[in-house]
Structures are given as C-alpha cells and as structure tokens.
Write a protein that binds this DNA or RNA. Structure first.
Lengths: 336, 336
DNA sequence: GTTGGCACTCTCCCCAAGCGAGTGCTAACA
DNA sequence: TGTTAGCACTCGCTTGGGGAGAGTGCCAAC
C-alpha cells in the first residue's frame, strides 16, 4: 500500500465518518486535495476495493470503509488525539456530592459520559469480593438475630442480617467472633477453603451457631463477586443514521438487555488502555454492525471494571479512544 | 349513553385493542353480532364521535377509541379479569435463589414481568430510610477508622466507613454508642431532629468524635431515602405498531432515561390497587400517547415502591390491571 | 327507528419515467 | 508508465398518476 493509497483511504474514512454517506472519487479529489484528478482516484479506489479496505453499497454509489479498512485506519492512519487538548469540557466533573456507593456513582458517570459522546456508554463494575478480609464482626441485634459485618482491604463492607434458628449465648458469640478473626483475617473473601471452614465448625462450642454463620459467609463470598453493568445514552443510538432501521436497533437493544453478553464484553482486563473491536471482530453477533471501544479502570491498582462505548462502525475512533482513556484514568483516581 | 351505544363502543375498543386498526361499521355489525345492520351502527358511531368517545384518523377510515373512550371503557365497560383464572403461568416465580439485596431482586423481577406482558415494566423502590432505628453500632476497624452500622425495623441495614481526623479512645467510643442508642433508638432515621443531635454533641466527652459520627448519620439519613427505578422489557415497545415511528419511540425512551420524571410517576401511594393513566391524562408530555398502569407494593404494610406498566393507549387494560395487582401483592409478600 | 343503496372521499400500493450520482472503460497525453 | 478527459452505463431515489379497497354520509324506502 503506497502513500497515495493511504491518503485516499484516509480521506474516504474521514469523510464517511463525518457524513455517513458513501464517498465518490470527485469528493476525495476536491475536498481532500491530493493533487490528482477524480479518474486517478477512481483507479486507486478500485485497487483498495480489491484489497478489501473499502466497499460499494451499490454499483453506482461511492465507497465506504469495510471493517478491514477501519482496522487499518485505527492501527496506522489515525492521528491520535491528544487528551490534553481535548480535555476542556470533556473531563468528568470532579466528584463532590455525597458518596452514595459505587453503584450510584457509576450510574451517574455513565449518563454523564453519554452526554459527551454520541454513542451508548456501558460501565461494568466488578464485585469487590476479591479483597483480603480485614475485620469480621458479629453484632447482636436481638436474641434471634445477628448482623454479620465483613470488611476487606478493598474498602468493601458487606453485611447480612442472620435469622437464627435458636437464640445464641452471648459468650459463644464473642468466642466465635475471635475464632473467626484469628483464622480468617488476611484471607481472600472469595477463597475461603472448605477445609478451613470445617475446622472452625468443629472447634466451635456452639455448633449450630457456627454452622449458620459460616453458611452465611459462604453465601456472601459467592455473591460479592457478581458484577453489574450500567448503561447510559441508549438514546444516542437513535440519532445514528445507520440505525434508523428498527430491526437493527432492536437487535442492539436486545443485546444490551441481556446481561450475560454484556458482562463478557466488559470483563475487566489487566491492561488499562483503549481497545477497539470493529464490526465483525465482535464476538456477539448482535453487534457486528457496531464498534466497541473499551478501557478498564482500576481501584488501587487492581482491575475493577470496564467502560465500553458502543457506536456504529463509523464511529469517531480518535476522539472516542482519547476520551475513554481519559475517563478510565479519572475513574481510577476517584475510586481509589 | 344507551345500552346499544355502549355495546358499539365496547366492540370498537375490543377490536382496536386486538388489531390496532381502525374498525369500520361492517366489522362491528358482523363480528360482534348486535343484531343490527352496518347502517345503524354507522349512526351510532356518528353519535359516539360527536360525544368524543371515538375518532376518525381520516375521513374514509374506521373509528378508533379516544382517550375519553378508553377511560369510559376502563371505568364502566371492561369486564375485570379474575386473577385466579389468569394466574397459571403468570405469577412471579417463587423467590428461591440467594437473597442478593432488594435492588437485584427488583431488577430481575422487572425483567421477568416484561416477559409476561408486551409492554415495558418499571419498578421503583423507595429508600427505606423511613423505618425506626433499632440498633446503632460503632465498630472499631483501625485506630483511625470506625464503621457505623444502622439497623431499622424495616430491615434496612446501612453502614458507612468513617475516616476519623484523629484516633478515638476506645472507652469514648463505647460511651458514645450507648448515648446514641439511648437517645435515638425508636426514632425515624429520616427525622432526626437537629436539636436532639446538638444535645448529644454537647453531652459527649470527646466532641470531635461525636461531631464526625453525627455528621455521618445525617448524611446517611438523607441518602437512604432516595429511590431507584428499574426498567425491564424496553424492547417490547418495538413490537407495538404505534411506535414503529422512530420519533415517538425516541420520545418514550427519552422519558425513561430521565430519572426525575420516572420517579414522580412511580411515587409510592397509600392505595395498593391498580391505577390507570390514559394518554393525555399523563402529566409528562413525552408519554401522552401511552397509558400507564401503576400499583404500589408494600413492605410490612408500608408503601415501599410502585410497579408501572407502560404501553400504548391501546393496551390490554383488563389483563394488565389484573396482573399488576397480582404482582404487587406477590412482591409485598416476598419483601415482607 | 331501521335498512339498503349509492355516490363520494381518502389512503395505500404499484408502476413507470426522469433525475442524479458515480462508476468503468477507452483513448489521448506527458 | 502513470495521469487525465470523455463518455456510456448502471442503479437507487423521487415523483406523479391511476386503480383498488375500505369506509363513510346521506337519502329514500320500509
């Protein structure tokens, strides 16, 4: 691929991203002055099509980029946008309200982000059950009720109200609390070994009580790992000309309503930069006419969730990638 | 309005709900045998139109019900569906998974409900900060950190990790806990009077500690009241012929994305039966081509949230109302 | 008060023609 | 050998008209 072909491809992609209309040889020649006539451009375009970088919707229409073309653009052509220059008016607002939990923060953030791009924003937040146990507390509430409180070093605080099948003896409760702390502190909540738990159960002087509490802890450890996904700016999809067709739109919304696929898409990674999946590169068939840009944010250096931006393949990659990287950094800071 | 007019109106509404097409005099006469000819029906329809119960999309089309017509139908014509008969395959599944918090439950429930109706389901859950304080616990975590745990009789457990500006003295912490319990237990979390809090602050021996904890409590009481709304079956709207027009659909989704309006719509009421708002009866202009059926569910007898079902004005009111009342009862039971 | 008949209106669908955009090819040119 | 102008051709989109179908309103008869 020689220099001029690259210029032609670049021009076609730029124009198509801006207009969503197939671009013809004349436009390329005039608007992006390459110094050659439309006829020459036509020859180049013919070659590019043969190589699979662009395609013709109909025989008498202009060309539009193919997935392969976009891939080439993202990897080699695109000028990376400087986050610094684009920062004004694009950064997330400094968090300054009352802290109302990570879920609330992420939900609001996803909606705010969606106002700044024309695409749909999805943010996953991984369960935080992977921290080390820092504190275990058994709080007596009533003779039949105990509150179990677990705190991990990732800042997770988890609690469960436990309805006992028989009243507890206060002394036993304190004993049990001590035992639990001795045996379990410093371990990962999601990796409590059954052997260890069995040992505690056996050593305990009030077996039933220990049994009930340990069962609850196992439940908690299973539950705290689960992720959630928040979506903002679904409506932005409606402004995209490629989704004027209801069936396509429906497909996308179907995908967004189904949590499993979304979670798979937004699984946190170790890498924190922006990653792009273009059209058919997406594993989920429902969104193979879309592109997804993702970036993982961290909490205290550990992957904690992923931001995803879903738009048509004709999305503005340079801007989107710059923004998502900026946002991932900002979220990491806010949440750490 | 005489009996035959009522029959004609009833027939028109039934047919329109089923087909979404304007119904003509011949159809009314033949399909819903009233024993009179189309010409007679035409006269009746002419009257009904004059009175505003039905309307003509074009001069040469059949009639469709107006908002007023639907209102009359809901109030007087409709045969109420027996919940008993419709129960098979329509009830919510018995909750039997791990309990993962009310939010999760409501989200899943909204999606399940949406599978059983062809409309969009919205469920609000009111903050549960309106219960009476049953237990206050200050858990030492580290010399600089305290965990504040509040439990109310509505089953709410709320906690906050507090970063102190100076280390606490263990004895003072216990003292303070006792004071707080003595003064505040039995009071409503959302109605802690400033005077009372000031008094505690003054009596405390370690002022700064008390101050920080009380400030946190005020925050918690403010935050726990806030509501959230879950939406399921947004996609169902796509199957409704009246929303094949993108601009209408867009309007509705705009409404659903904007939380304030939704919350207003789904404010819990004291009354637990189904309430219908038809078309222009809705205060929000964005959904004035829709109808909304709502019913409030209770937790231990107190209004806790509202289920809403949003569909075209041509919705199947009898079925929807029967279902929502059933579901509100079931949710109340599960959550109590 | 009810009915049949009839003229009238209006929408929807289909089809054909015309327009416009853009290509591919060929021949000429530097 | 690469570039350019010219030209015929293709194809989608729009426009306009005609016909079919559905349903009404009105009138006269029962």
């Amino acid at each position: 691929m020689d220099e001029r072909k690259r210029q032609v491809l670049h021009a076609i992609i730029k124009d198509y991203i801006a207009t969503a209309e197939p671009v013809g040889s004349r436009v390329v020649s005039k608007k992006y002055d390459l110094g050659v006539s439309p006829a020459t451009i036509r020859n180049e375009m013919s070659d590019l099509e043969e190589q699979g970088y662009i395609e013709q919707p109909h025989i008498s229409a202009g060309r539009k980029p193919s997935d392969k073309g976009y891939r080439y653009y993202v990897d080699r052509l695109m000028e990376k946008e400087e986050v610094g220059t684009s920062q004004a008016g694009r950064a997330l607002p400094q968090f300054n309200g009352h802290w109302q939990g990570i879920g609330k923060y992420i939900r609001q953030t996803s909606q705010y982000m969606a106002q700044l791009v024309d695409y749909t924003v999805m943010i996953s937040s991984q369960g935080q059950g992977k921290g080390l146990l820092q504190k275990i507390q058994l709080v007596p509430v009533s003779p039949w009720q105990i509150l179990l409180v677990l705190i991990t070093d990732t800042g997770l605080v988890s609690h469960r109200l436990l309805q006992l099948s028989q009243p507890y003896e206060p002394i036993r409760l304190i004993e049990l609390e001590t035992t639990l702390e001795k045996k379990l502190l410093g371990r990962r909540l999601d990796q409590l070994s059954p052997a260890l738990l069995a040992q505690i159960r056996n050593e305990s002087k009030q077996r039933l009580l220990a049994e009930e509490i340990l069962a609850l802890m196992e439940k908690v450890s299973a539950q705290e790992q689960d992720e959630q996904v928040y979506i903002g700016g679904l409506m932005n999809m409606f402004s995209q000309p490629e989704f004027r067709d209801m069936t396509k739109l429906k497909q996308i919304i179907e995908f967004l309503e189904e949590e499993a696929g979304l979670r798979e898409l937004l699984k946190p990674r170790d890498f924190s930069g922006a990653i792009v999946a273009i059209g058919r590169e997406n594993p989920a068939p429902d969104i193979q006419e879309c592109s997804v840009v993702t970036a993982t944010y961290m909490i205290r250096g550990k992957p904690a969730g992923t931001i995803g931006i879903l738009g048509p393949t004709r999305m503005s990659y340079a801007k989107t990638m710059a923004l998502i990287e900026l946002w991932a950094r900002e979220m990491s800071e806010t949440l750490s």
